[in-house]
């Protein structure tokens, strides 16, 4: 890996791991809790947000030298709103059932703080390619976060995964998992796992070192 590739990889992994929007920064909680009742919903929401993130970061980055700082927030919001509208139409064209399932949360991508945060904190200072790599990583991290919740909630709350029945007819679904409280339970459990993993890591390094020695 050349240094440039390593830097790009690092930029990409930033959003997936070190600054994961769901598990580390705890941003964008509104869609995270609301639409993750099934894996399909979570995946579609993640992909829609990722598209908006990449497209708006690209445009912000391209225009970064001509956007006066006094009107930058207004400009970013117009750009983000544009791509959200595009996603809105595309989802309607792909599947009305999915559009109904995601409901108002598609339009609410406009105010997802991950996107405005990326535009302001990264894309407005970076060249288009690194900005898009960073945005892709963040989008992937967000999608992974949503999927992590959606998969657990769908398996426990409906006994299915991506609509495929897992346990047969005798399974009694754990309905609370697809209700709003289930979102909080599962999110809390995942945050616990991540925090534990972070704490555990130094110990693991030590163990690995001693093993090699």
């Amino acid at each position: 890996m050349t240094p440039a590739q390593a830097k790009n990889w690092d930029e990409f992994m930033e959003g997936i791991w070190r600054q994961n929007p769901v598990f580390v920064m705890v941003l964008g909680m509104c869609p995270t809790l609301a639409v993750t009742v099934s894996a399909v919903n979570a995946l579609s929401m993640g992909l829609a947000t990722t598209f908006v993130l990449i497209a708006s970061c690209f445009l912000v980055s391209v225009m970064r030298n001509v956007i006066p700082k006094e009107v930058r927030i207004a400009t970013y919001i117009v750009i983000i709103a544009t791509f959200v509208t595009v996603v809105d139409y595309v989802i309607q064209a792909v599947s009305l059932a999915l559009y109904d399932a995601l409901g108002a949360f598609i339009q609410l991508i406009v105010v997802n703080c991950i996107i405005l945060g990326r535009a302001e904190a990264h894309a407005s200072r970076a060249a288009p390619v690194p900005a898009m790599i960073n945005a892709t990583g963040m989008g992937a991290g967000f999608t992974i976060g949503l999927l992590a919740l959606g998969v657990v909630r769908e398996i426990l709350g409906a006994g299915t995964l991506f609509g495929i029945s897992l346990f047969g007819a005798s399974f009694q679904p754990w309905v609370i998992m697809v209700l709003p409280p289930g979102g909080f339970f599962v999110l809390g459990a995942w945050l616990l796992v991540f925090a534990w993993w972070e704490r555990r890591k130094p110990g693991a390094d030590v163990a690995e070192v001693t093993q090699h020695a």
Binding site: I67, P68, V71, A81
Partner: peptide
């Protein structure tokens, strides 16, 4: 400022 907002709005 007006020029930038105008261009952005047109493109969008």
């Amino acid at each position: 400022m007006i020029r930038t907002l105008g261009i952005v709005s047109t493109v969008c």
